[in-house]
Nucleic acid binder design. Sequence first.
RNA 1: GGUGGCAUAGCCAAGUGGUAAGGCCGUGGAUUGCAAAUCCAUUAUCCCCCAGUUCGAAUCUGGGUGCCACCUCCA
Length: 482
Amino acid sequence: MTLTVYNTLTRQKETFQALEANKVRMYCCGITVYDYCHLGHARTCLVWDVVRSYFEWLGYEVNYIQNFTDIDDKILNRAKKEGTSMEDVSERFIQAYFEDMSRMGIRQADAYPRATHTLDGIKRLVAELEAKGFAYPADGDVYYAVKKFSDYGKLSGRKLEDMQTGASGRVDTPEAEKKQDPCDFALWKAAKEGEPSWDSPWGAGRPGWHIECSAMVRERLGETIDIHVGGSDLTFPHHENEIAQSEAATGQSLANYWLHNGMVKVDGEKMSKSLGNFTTIRDLLDKPVDAMAMRLFILQAHYRKPVDFTNEAIAAATNGWETLREGLLFGDRFGQDLGFTDSATIAKSEESELIRQRFKDAVNDDFNFTAGLAVLFEMAKELQKEGHIIVHQRKTATDPQKLATLWYTLIELSAVLGFKAELKEETVNDGLTDAEIEQLIEQRAAAKKAKNWAECDRIRDELKDQGISLIDTKEGTTWHSV
RNA sequence: GGUGGCAUAGCCAAGUGGUAAGGCCGUGGAUUGCAAAUCCAUUAUCCCCCAGUUCGAAUCUGGGUGCCACCUCCA
């Protein structure tokens, strides 16, 4: 099966075809940097980072760009409230963004252009739109005339006449009088007292909200790109307006595929700043919730569907991650004893290829990571079970070659989805030597023989405090570190 | 009012014409001094409701109900 993606533009799944063979040009609408990122941002960043990794795994070279919008009313408001500057606020939250994403295990994009670094491109674009009759100046502002762009509404499936503009509050704003149509939007805003501004042919001012993305896409990736992604709440008006700006200016299609991820919900409602029902990434990870469990939570729902954030869901994902983690650590724990070597040869094995193909078939269907995870869990469960057998019996009857195949394949495919496990600091020798442990086990065996159950339990608890778990079997007691 | 989407077991969730993936939780049994851990087995005759198309539908069509998102800032 070839890769198909659901294109918001056409409202159907389409076979993915890159503009340039084996290359993908991908742009993700990033964040406005006025506060800490919440789980909604995490989902967006994580999903598209995984999509990018999947493309790479398929053999594509991906140029992945994500912007920071660092000129905005909300940033200015915050700066005003804090008595700091716009730069101060945005710089602080950009740093926080990188910290949070790093903790989430999300890779960095190839570039993070900022609105404040793209002023020349923005002004050029506005000038072009004005020259072509798609924009008009009004009292220091410049507006985009939506009626001039015949395709306006093609992405979000709206018609200008259907939009009940009166209900939106747009009509009540001071800008409304300057607009030729209530749906017209600002490309450039005249400078206000005490706010940062830049010189322009229309006077001092700053860019409107949507124009920076049009400029950044063009500057970094060209006039037509393969994929433009973002949260579904950006479909209208942000992406619609981007299309209007870019396509009116260049005469070219802005992006061949428009992909949108679903929202994170809390108690059935969208998580958002305005509702105040958000959990920031740092609060969640500080709780602590494992970043990998969070990743599993996100990837266990299809990217286009909304996902409900509940403590129960996080608990389930935490347990699920534990299973996956045990599979991922199998080779680290037992590989040496089982003689695991040469991952390259194993990767080419028929069985590995078969699993890889199943994973690919699943995920190729519009990035169905959820179905792909089922393949991972199959392997992880089997390895987990084998690990238990080895811990309990100190050996396994299963062919090590088969286990090696499962393990290496699991590692490879998990990495595509960003799952990585690290062996925790072993506490085995933290205070107790193997000999001491064995001695305690012997003491316990003696107590056991004497039916001194209190002493038995005491020794077991003592070892448990040291991170040693005892397992009683018919052949005697074995132990392993937790 | 307009537009888009969703409804599958206790919870989460995949599946878009061929007879219900996966995760979490649970249950029965084995084992055990009791536990823990582990092992074995097991968990939707059915996919919101009604009607239709079809040899056959969770999957297609029509109608209904409920929920969500966007139309204002939003990932």
